[in-house]
Design a protein around this nucleic acid. Sequence first.
DNA 1: GCAATACTGTTTCAGATGAAACGGATGTCA
DNA 2: TGACATCCGTTTCATCTGAAACAGTATTGC
Lengths: 167, 167
Amino acid sequence: MKRMSSAALAEAEPFLLERFLPYELSVTANRVSRLFARRYARTFGLSIPEWRCMAVIGRYALVSATAIVERTAMDKVKVSRAVATLLAKGLVRRSPHPADRRLSLLAFTAKGRRIYEQIVPLARRIEAELMEVLGPAERTALSAMLSRIAERARALDEQALDQGLPD
Amino acid sequence: MKRMSSAALAEAEPFLLERFLPYELSVTANRVSRLFARRYARTFGLSIPEWRCMAVIGRYALVSATAIVERTAMDKVKVSRAVATLLAKGLVRRSPHPADRRLSLLAFTAKGRRIYEQIVPLARRIEAELMEVLGPAERTALSAMLSRIAERARALDEQALDQGLPD
DNA sequence: GCAATACTGTTTCAGATGAAACGGATGTCA
DNA sequence: TGACATCCGTTTCATCTGAAACAGTATTGC
């Protein structure tokens, strides 16, 4: 084969969205999120932000909204709204922090705990059904690659911000 | 180690959102999308839906909105709006289909083509910067895994619809 | 002490989203 | 034909989203 300059090569290779990794990633994540959103909604009437809050409360018991923000990759507005909904649904209750009146501590109600104990196995079952198409080694590799990519994206984004919006 | 029933095992293993693959996938895809959205917006004033439409028009020249829907994994409302914006920005023009008056065919204006020719290398460059954290074999593997997962999610979702909403 | 600053969580507001309804055009089948 | 189903792309409407402003509380530095 003849050698080409990389510019000529770029000319020669048409750009195909369906082979563009960021696009593939977005499409796959959206499909997966939609699957979970529908199942959670149908079974428990929960949205994904609500479920994520439940997952953190279930793991750590008395948590503040800020702790949920740190552990869910959701912004504080989204968490605030999800928690408000969970309070209204009677799945979560709120108590003031004894030392710092800015914080309020969240915990399950009895009803909330019952639902949590049902939804965790459901979540694991859907994940298992989904990841059946991968072998165990592939799952580990995927997880590792995703976290490297996420970290890289965060780094590139911050770097761009530093350059793009100086001071 | 003592053997446990899988139920007891499930009991014993706390549920951690950060090790839940669907969550990892969602977080990574969102970070990546945000990176691209910011760069495209800053450099060309384009949103991701607009860029996706441009990518399809650039590849296939005269396309209908429906063709864009099929090739971008976006719904027709989103495509309709993105195309309207591209028309307003003067990057795309619309001509009637000679045989079927329901369709209109989209193509670049000169300005649109100029921007397309700049944005494709930018997209490739960002992708390259991002995927630096993976080896070539890993990129291929990731792409293959993502498409299997997306297909599986689609299948499970349809299956659930069939069961959940009979008739 | 007491500004000034920083933090928590809510509200506001303007924009994005998608299901459903829609108007217009084409296809189908009797 | 002509009635009915189907398709294309837009609009509507109710909801979701997050940046920014906010009120209330805590911390810092003088």
